[in-house]
Every structure is written in C-alpha cells, then in structure tokens.
Design a protein around this nucleic acid. Structure first.
Ligand code: NAD
Ligand code: NAD
Lengths: 224, 224
DNA sequence: AAGAGTTTGTGAACGTGGGAACAAACCGAG
DNA sequence: CTCGGTTTGTTCCCACGTTCACAAACTCTT
C-alpha cells in the first residue's frame, strides 16, 4: 500500500513517532499498541493508525506493533538509514548553538562544515570544526555531496546566502533568518521563525484574558 | 467583521504579514496592493485577502492597503500593542542564543528573567541579565505578571520545568526540548523541533533523488 | 457625470486532514 | 476447531483551509 504519496501532515508527524519509539526502546518495551504509542506521541490513536497505514501494514491485529521493526520502517521511509551531510552558514549566537547540538548528529545528520563571511570568526574551533570562509561553500558541497544547508545569518544576508547554496547544488534549506526566501521549485525551504511562534502564543494569550472588548475600529494611533 | 474567531492557519500567517509590512515601511512604501504584499510574504494573494478579511475591512478597493494602518491593525489583533514579559529556563547553548536575540524584544517580548537549575551558571551575566536559580520562578512570574515561558532545558527536564511553570501561573509555553509536553487544556504549548525539520527535509530530499521504488512489496509506479 | 481601469472582499468549488466507527485479522483457551 | 477477546487497517463523514472567479467599490480621466 506504499506506492502512493504520503500526506504532508503525516510526514511532519513521523519524526515525533520516531522519538516516541526510541523512548519506548530505552525503557526496553518491545511491543506497543496504537493507543500506547499515540499517547506517547501526544496524538489521537486513530490518527496514528492512519498515518502508519500510509507506510504499509507493519502492525499485527490483536497484538500491536513491534517497536524496533516499526522504528526501522519509519526511519527508512524518512531516509534516516542514510547519512545526510549538512553545512551551517552564519556562525553567530544561533550558529554556535546549532553546531554544538548533538540532536542532529544522533539522527544521521552530520555537520561537515561551518561557514561565515566574517574574516574575524574564521579559524575559530566550534564543536571540533574550524569555521571556514563562505567562499568555500561550493567546493565543500561538491566534495561531501551536501544536499541540506542551514542558514543562521542575519535576515539581510539570507537570500544571498540561499542563492549561493542553490547555485552550489543544495536542494533543501532550513532557514532561521526571519525572511521569506525565494527559490526555484525543485528546492525545499523550511523556515523556523521563533518570533512568529511567540506572536502566535501572544494572540491566544490575549484571547484568554480578554473575554469581550468590542472596539473594532479605533484611531490609527501608532505605537512604534 | 471581527468578533468571529480567526482561523488558526490565518493566525499563523499574521506574523509573516507583519514582517512584510515592516519591510515595506523601511523602504518608505506607504501603500500596497494585496498582490504586492502577498508576494513579499510568499503567499497567494487570494489567501492574503481572505486572511485579512477575517480581521475586518482595512483595505480600499481600487487602491489597496495603507501599510502603516494595516500594520497597526494586525499588531493589535495579535496583541503586540502590549508588552509581554517572558522567562527563559535553561541557559545552555540555545538559551544563551535566545537571551541574546534582539528579534524578541523588538516585537514587544521582554525577557524579564533567565533561570537555570545549575548552580555553577547562576550569577553569570547574559544579555544584561543575571542567571537566577530556577526556584525563583514563581516569585518572578508573580512579580512581573509573566504569561509566556520558554523551555530550553534538556528533554529529560522539560516536563518537570513545564509543570512548575503551569503551577506558577504561566499559560503559554514555547518548548525547544524534543519531547511532548502534557499540560492542562487552558495552557498552550508550541513546540520548535529542529531535528524534525531536518527530517522532513530529508524525506523530501530522498524522494527527489530516488525515483525507483525501494519497496519490494509493490509496483514501481512513482511520481517524477 | 459617466466610463474605463483597479483592486478588494467574498461566495462557491475543491482538496486535505481529523475522528468515529467497524469489519478484518490475529491470539489463546478450551 | 471454534469462540471470545483484542487491536489493526480502512471506510465514511465532517470540518477546515485553499484557490478561483467575480461582483462591489473605489480612483482617475475625459
Ligand atoms: N539568536 C537567536 O536565538 C535567534 C533566534 C531566532 C532567530 N534568529 C535568527 O538567526 C539569525 C542569526 O542570529 P544570531 O543571533 O546568531 O546572529 P549573529 O549576528 O550572532 O550571527 C550572524 C552570523 O552570520 C554571519 N554572516 C553575516 N553575513 C553573512 C554572509 N553573507 N555569509 C555568511 N555569514 C554571514 C556573521 O558574521 C555572524 O557570525 C538571524 O537572522 C536571527 O534573526 C536568531
Ligand atoms: N543547541 C541547539 O542548537 C538545540 C537545537 C535544537 C534543540 N535543542 C534543544 O534545546 C534544549 C537545550 O539545548 P542546549 O544545547 O542549550 O543544552 P545545554 O545542555 O547546553 O543547556 C541546558 C541547560 O538547561 C539547564 N537545566 C537542566 N535541567 C534543568 C532544570 N530542571 N531546570 C532548569 N534548568 C535546567 C542546564 O543547567 C543547562 O544550562 C535541549 O532539549 C536540546 O535538545 C537545542
């Protein structure tokens, strides 16, 4: 049943299931029901079963799922059975944290280079890697077969950095700069926007504390 | 007009529109069409218009939107006309980066305290704030009226930290630890999971480069 | 004042995703 | 082998979100 395309919403949850399965394995639980796994992943059990059914029939009716087997199948589906070389561009505050983050390498993502345009930063050792000049990007991509690039530069530089990445052959970009990136259709961009997340929380928070205050139109007084 | 609830998908895009409007204002553009704004925000213009229509009728047919006026209306809707005090718990690699990030304070989010359980870190000055013991959480929340908490601790500590936050009165949580948090229904949690983002990219990347079906069970009919 | 040209706001069609419910499949006991 | 208990995989239906297409509303020119 797996030749069909997997729904995007399902793809986004597969990493969560993978984490839940790893957590079960650490507790030496070998088998689980959809109910147990769903609760560990924080989703509805019907949703979980439907998600998994898109990958194939890896469970046993009346029994449940073999944790290790299911984990392997999900990892294979996502593509985590292979190694993904990654470059990070912009080694400032955030770039340093990312370079030091072990959660990437433990899941098959290997940081092969840290790049920065600032000559003052170059040569600095971060997480065992030397910061290298941004101009070396395309040589590094060629050498290691890098497909995924991470952008942690200021917003003003992000589009230019992205263009160079695409030129160099990178086809997937994870963008932390708060700006919309324009890329050719074959390139995927995912954006992580921390300010947006806070703003969404603020919206709901405001609704919680203000039950009713109908002032739809007010003076265009602007607070900078 | 505006008393109706705003769809969640729309709420998630409002911050993007806000950024686009700010960017237009910086270039001293006072008026824009839905087409221009949509392109700056990277969305379809019909979607943009429908989103904005949920807030009210702030445009002028035949003309477009007044950039400053629309910005104010969106900011008001999100709740950015008021100040949101924030606490960050877990001042390690990521916590340091977050504390130093100017993008939060520039949008009405004010970091009032940095907390860490590690005694060795306490007293350290980060971005003008001293790292304080985690035990002071509830006093700080009371004193500043904090409604939003950020978790940047290891996954193993996240649920416990979250529980303390909820007890202290925090009702919105931004979680960076890769673990599912359980909270009472009146509390909102948003999760930022960088590993998941990379895994989603990897899934699509794998599909791009592997046109042949790796699954032995069924036919090799695969999209280009 | 009227018409031509724009652009918004929205109704309607379409697609995707979520959840309840259930038949199919499996296990173990007797 | 059959029956009862259990759990998956799937079907059906509804809600939500996206996109198209167009009438309504506005500006500007003549
Ligand atoms: N720090 C955070 O917690 C945080 C949170 C959310 C978003 N962000 C975003 O992440 C990005 C980085 O944030 P930061 O705090 O690390 O900023 P930073 O200023 O500390 O680091 C930016 C780095 O990018 C480098 N750089 C600049 N232009 C470059 C170019 N053209 N090519 C290569 N490198 C270049 C700079 O030399 C610097 O080292 C920003 O866009 C910021 O908005 C940061
Ligand atoms: N570093 C990154 O770029 C990155 C990226 C993605 C996700 N994350 C996640 O963010 C979290 C933090 O990452 P990090 O690299 O900063 O880790 P870190 O180990 O550098 O920092 C964690 C901090 O939390 C503190 N802490 C531990 N238990 C605590 C408790 N009970 N109460 C209060 N403080 C406590 C520690 O003292 C430490 O200072 C982790 O869950 C990690 O998986 C980090």
């Amino acid at each position: 049943m797996s030749p069909t395309r997997i729904p995007e919403a399902t793809v986004a949850r597969l990493p969560v299931y993978l984490r839940a399965l790893n957590s079960l394995l650490e507790r030496e639980i070998r088998t689980c029901s959809s109910e147990e796994l769903a609760s560990a992943a924080g989703v509805n059990s019907a949703k979980l079963r439907k998600d998994l059914s898109h990958l194939g029939s890896y469970g046993t009716r009346g029994v449940g799922y073999d944790v290790e087997y299911l984990r392997y199948q999900i990892a294979r589906e996502i593509g985590l059975t292979q190694d993904w070389p990654v470059v990070i561009v912009g080694i400032g505050n955030l770039g340093h944290a990312l370079a030091n983050y072990s959660g990437f390498s433990s899941r098959g993502f290997r940081t092969v280079a840290l790049l920065d345009a600032d000559a003052a930063r170059q040569g600095e050792l971060v997480a065992g890697l030397k910061i290298r000049p941004f101009t070396e990007l395309s040589a590094i991509v060629r050498e290691h077969g890098v497909a995924i690039g991470v952008i942690a530069t200021p917003a003003a530089a992000a589009q230019s950095v992205c263009d160079h990445m695409v030129d160099a052959g990178i086809r997937s970009v994870l963008n932390f700069a708060p700006t919309v990136l324009t890329v050719p259709p074959e390139v995927d961009v995912r954006m992580v926007d921390l300010s947006s997340e806070l703003q969404i929380l603020a919206y709901h928070e405001q609704r919680k504390s203000a039950p009713a205050s109908p002032d739809p139109t007010l003076d265009p007084e602007v607070v900078a």
